[in-house]
Each structure stands twice: as C-alpha cells, then as structure tokens.
Simulated scan of single mutants.
Amino acid sequence: MAEPQTIADDSADESGHPNKVDAASELVGEDLAIGYPTSTDPVVECERVVLPAGEVTALVGPNGSGKSTLLKSMANQLAPERGRILLDGNQIQSMESKQLAQQLGLLSQENSSPGGLTVEDLVFHGRYPHRGFFEAVSESDREAVERAIALAGVGHLRDEEMSNLSGGQKQLAWIAMVLAQDTDILLLDEPTTYLDLHHQLRVMEVVRTLNREEGVTVGIVLHDIGQAARFADNLVAMKEGELYDWGPPIDVVTEGLLADVFRVDADVDSRSSTGPHIAPHRAIEE
C-alpha cells in the first residue's frame, strides 16, 4: 500500500486564511503491536501508520477492528508491546506528560467530570498544560477558553453544571475542553457519538476549520465512512486489527472495500463533489 503523500501548500484556503501545513506536526507509528493486559495476542499490528502533517486522517472500520486501540496508543494512553510512536521524529514515550499535552490533545470515548463542575470550569481544565501549578489564569488562557466555547457552540451552556446536561451537550463540552488545550495535533475518538446530525456536522466543520486555518493535524475515529470520506484528507481503513488500506478517500472508498471490510453491498459514486458518495443496498451475510 502506498503511503499518503503530504503536499505543502502555502497558498490561502477557500476562506482566505493561509495554509500553515509547513509548521504542522506529524505523528507516525512504526512496527506496532498493541494489546491489553487481558489479551494474549496483540489487538492491533501494523508496520507503519502516518497522520500526515496539517491533514485530517480518519480511522474507519467495523466494531472491533482496532481503531480506538490504535488511537489510544498514538496518544500515549496505551503503550505498544512492540514498536514506537514518533511526534515530529521524537518518541512520545520519552516526552514528559506536560510537554506532550502541549502538543497533542486527545478526546477519548469515556469521559467523566466531578459533580458541580460547570461547562466553563471544564473548558478551563484544557489549559492545564500551559500553566504552572500555582500560576493564575492568564489573559491568553481566557482567550483560548472563549474561542473554544465559541467553536464548540456551547456559549449558552457555560454556566450549566455538567451533571445536568444531555449526552450530546456533554460531548460538545468535552470537545470545547480539548480545543482549549490548543495543540498541534488533535486526536478524537468518535467525537460525534450521541450527537444529532446538525451537531455532528458542526463538530466536523470545527475540525476542518482548525485544520485549514491553523494547520492542526487531526486523527479522528469515525463510524460513518461517508462522513469520513467527505471531511478527511486521508482514510485509514482497518480490519481485524490490521491496516486494510490507506490514502485519499477517492482511492480507499471502493465497492470492494465496503464488501470486504464493512460487509455491505453498496454502490460508490467517486465523482461526487463532496467526496465518494456511498449508496448501501444490503448487509452481506457473514
């Protein structure tokens, strides 16, 4: 399989903002075997996986294919049994936790907040890597929090306690927190879970805005391959703990992949202006 090509582009994007890909960070996994203490064999094995600098890469595949496991390892939340994860050539296992948190943000699937914490309080927690233990909140902290709240669209919820929010509202609050962390790399594990279609699209648009306007490198686990094909520059398709294919959506999203990986009979329109359009017909028997 060919490695995705990263093309530096200094021109302005569609909104007139400069493309900052030259200053973006790259995350690479090499010779990986990843497992859990309860598993006898590795859950994920791959020779090389790349989140190219300044691009959005979506990890897709059926349940149990290893997407979240791979993302956790690339965020240094799960140490690989073999291999290494490199952030701009530096092994993340050797980086101090605060230093890594200044460069890499992770939104996991499972999040819990103390009772009584407001949305604004939670978002301010995203600023912890940028402050000393006894340092007061700075003006730059406040600006980052306000920007994150605005991007996530939770301004009307800032004074609400997290315990009083719906599942979708909580998810948006957690997204605001990781945005406030203001990192070069953003890893999101199924961030559209619990969200209705309107808010799903809003989250994906926020991801695209961060990528295009600020050069943030994004790795995102998504169940909806159609949504992934629309918003991502690259797809990493996984099957049974291995990389099945990777590259631009127009190359990866094929009728063969949908049948072999997702067990779905479907037509793919590769000429759609918003990326490959998938028309599913039926589930293929196991």
Rank of each mutant, 00 (worst) to 15 (best):
S108E: 08
V56M: 07
D9Q: 09
N63W: 12
P4Q: 08
A101Y: 03
S25F: 11
R48L: 09
G64V: 03
D189F: 03
E255T: 15
M74N: 05
Q103L: 12
Q169T: 07
T6Q: 14
G226Q: 13
D141M: 01
Q93A: 13
I85W: 04
A279W: 13
E135V: 00
Y194P: 05
D10I: 08
R127A: 04
L27I: 12
E161S: 09
I185C: 13
L59D: 02
L258S: 07
G89Q: 07
L210F: 01
H17D: 10
M1L: 12
G126K: 00
S11R: 15
L59K: 01
R131Y: 09
N164D: 07
V21E: 10
D182P: 02
D182L: 04
E3R: 13
N211C: 04
R131N: 14
L27M: 13
D265E: 15
R282Y: 08
H17M: 14
D121K: 00
R131K: 15
S15H: 13
V49W: 04
K20A: 04
N111G: 04
S15R: 12
Q99V: 11
I284A: 08
A176H: 01
H277T: 05
D260N: 11
L179P: 06
Q5H: 11
A33Y: 10
S272N: 14
